[in-house]
């Protein structure tokens, strides 16, 4: 057996990397800032250009990176534990797709340009509707039914999004939709933060409350019930927790995929395969990854910034294929 660092040590390391990535996200960008600027911005008396850049451009972006990255890591780890499937992700149960559909409708109907708040609100609405349909289809608590229902909702959401794009009379609206779908946290304001944060954090609470059930679920549903786990409650918490936090995150960032897949997979051996301990580790890992990726897109292509969702997909999709091949190999032996 490998010698693993203790759980508190691992969390300490991940906290440090998250903090470093957060500070880097504030300091790195088109306007070069030093650490001194950051200190002045926080403690300085008179508002300056630097204070404005940090307070109104960099800070919201960094906070969103933190919130969304944590959400993606946490929900990925929860769903994988709950579905006992290392390939599970918020996308699997259709929540991301449904949230994206809600947002796309807001853009298509023009609601988002007259009422800016409509975009996030409709995305959260989309993910909640997906959850309610999931509850109706898979209310019995069976994991297989849930996966199948999720696949159905994903396909339906994808088809409806394509339909909206297809019907759009205005090419500019289509372009806006497509760019939004690519996923990014550029040019967001503190308004976005305030709108998303309460939902995201309540989602986290529900997920963390289910942590113990996830451990027992690694023995299967029947054993879990015989050990006193309330499967209906666990399902409710995990699905609603995922829907609320992913819905709010998708609303402000568009679709950013694969973070929830990659991060738990890498960290799992480091927490000795414990599904409950994987939650906090994956949240911090997700935040580190998303914040770093977001700094990276600013450095690689300063002019036309690459979209964050494009970057995560570029690295995530081959990783997904690798995982499938690996899973297939273990199934065959």
């Amino acid at each position: 057996m490998r010698n693993l660092p203790s759980y508190p040590a691992l969390i300490a390391v991940l906290l440090t990397t998250t903090l470093l990535a957060f500070v880097a996200s504030i300091l790195i960008g088109p306007t070069e800032l030093g650490f001194r600027d950051l200190v002045t911005a926080i403690f300085g008396e008179s508002p300056s250009m630097t204070t404005m850049i940090i307070g109104e451009i960099r800070l919201p972006r960094a906070i969103l990176g933190l919130l969304i990255g944590s959400t993606l890591g946490l929900t990925g780890a929860s769903l994988q534990g709950y579905l006992r499937n290392p390939l599970a992700e918020p996308g699997v149960i259709g929540v991301s797709t449904a949230a994206a559909l809600g947002a796309v409708l807001a853009i298509y109907t023009g609601l988002s340009s007259s009422v800016p708040l409509a975009l996030p609100v409709m995305a959260i609405g989309g993910s909640l509707i997906a959850v309610l349909i999931l509850r109706a289809l898979a209310g019995s608590g069976s994991i297989l039914t849930l996966i199948l229902a999720g696949v159905a909702i994903s396909s339906l959401g994808g088809a409806l999004t394509s339909l909206v794009l297809n019907l759009s009379p205005n090419p500019f609206a289509s372009l806006e939709i497509i760019f939004w779908l690519l996923g990014s946290i550029t040019d967001r304001s503190m308004d976005h933060v305030w709108l998303a944060a309460p939902f995201i954090i309540s989602g986290w609470v529900l997920l963390v409350l289910s942590a113990r059930a996830l451990d027992i679920l690694s023995l299967g549903e029947e054993t879990a019930i015989s050990l006193g786990i309330n499967m209906e409650r666990t399902q409710l918490f995990i699905i609603f927790g995922t829907a609320i936090s992913v819905g709010a995150a998708t609303a402000v960032s568009g679709v950013i995929g694969f973070v929830g897949l990659v991060v738990p997979h890498i960290l799992r051996p480091w927490v000795n395969y414990s599904p409950s301990r994987l939650l906090l580790a994956s949240a911090l890992g997700g935040a580190t990854l998303l914040l770093s990726a977001d700094v990276l897109v600013r450095l690689i292509t300063p002019g036309t910034e690459l979209k964050l969702g494009v970057v995560t997909a570029f690295f995530g999709a081959p990783f997904f294929l690798h995982l499938i091949l690996k899973t297939k190999a273990t199934f065959n032996t």
Binding site: R84, N85, P86, R212, D215, I216, S218, L219, G220, E222, T223, S226, L227, G228, I229, R268, P269, N272, Y273, S274, P275
Partner: peptide
């Protein structure tokens, strides 16, 4: 206590950790 027929887990848990899950209640 109940031991179902399907006795497998997706995760590579150490044997002792798995047995400790029985102490959940």
């Amino acid at each position: 206590a109940y031991l179902p027929q399907s006795r497998r887990t997706e995760w590579q848990l150490p044997a002792r950790t798995l047995v400790m899950l029985g102490r959940f209640p």
